[in-house]
Amino acid sequence: MSKRLVVMGDSFTEGVGDDDPAYPNGVRGWADRVAEQLAVHEPDLQYANLAVRGKLMGQVLAEQLDQGLDMRPDLVTLYAGGNDLMRPSVDIDAMMDDYDKAIGRLAETGATVVVFTGVDGVEDALFRKMRGRVAIYNEHTRVIAKQRGALVVDMWAMRQLRDRRMWAPDRLHLNSLGHTAVAIEVLAVLGVGHTLAETELGPREVLTTRERRAQNLQWSREHAWPWVQRRLRGESSGDHIKPKRPVLAPVRAQD
Rank of each mutant, 00 (worst) to 15 (best):
K3V: 12
K3I: 12
R4A: 12
R4H: 08
L5A: 02
V6Q: 00
V7W: 14
M8K: 03
G9K: 02
G9V: 02
D10A: 14
D10V: 05
S11F: 08
F12L: 11
F12P: 09
F12E: 02
T13P: 06
E14Q: 15
E14A: 12
G15W: 10
G15K: 14
V16R: 10
G17R: 12
D18N: 15
P21Y: 08
Y23T: 13
P24D: 14
N25A: 11
N25Y: 13
G29F: 11
G29V: 13
G29H: 09
G29L: 14
D32M: 14
V34F: 09
E36S: 15
E36M: 15
E36G: 13
L38K: 15
A39Y: 09
V40Y: 14
V40S: 09
V40T: 10
H41W: 11
H41I: 15
P43T: 12
D44V: 14
Q46S: 03
Q46K: 06
Q46W: 02
Y47W: 13
N49D: 14
L50P: 01
V52D: 01
V52F: 07
V52G: 03
R53K: 11
G54M: 00
L56D: 04
L56K: 05
M57E: 07
M57R: 07
M57F: 04
G58Q: 05
V60C: 10
A62T: 06
A62V: 02
A62K: 06
L65Y: 01
D66F: 01
L69M: 07
L69Q: 01
D70Y: 01
M71V: 04
M71T: 00
M71I: 00
M71Q: 02
D74P: 09
D74Y: 07
L75T: 05
V76C: 08
T77R: 08
T77S: 12
L78D: 05
L78V: 04
Y79P: 04
G81V: 03
N83S: 06
D84V: 05
D84S: 00
L85W: 00
M86V: 03
P88D: 02
P88S: 04
P88H: 05
S89P: 02
I92K: 06
I92D: 04
D93W: 08
D93C: 05
D93E: 15
A94S: 07
A94R: 09
M95G: 09
M96S: 01
M96G: 04
D97R: 15
D97C: 10
D97L: 09
D98F: 09
D98C: 08
D98V: 06
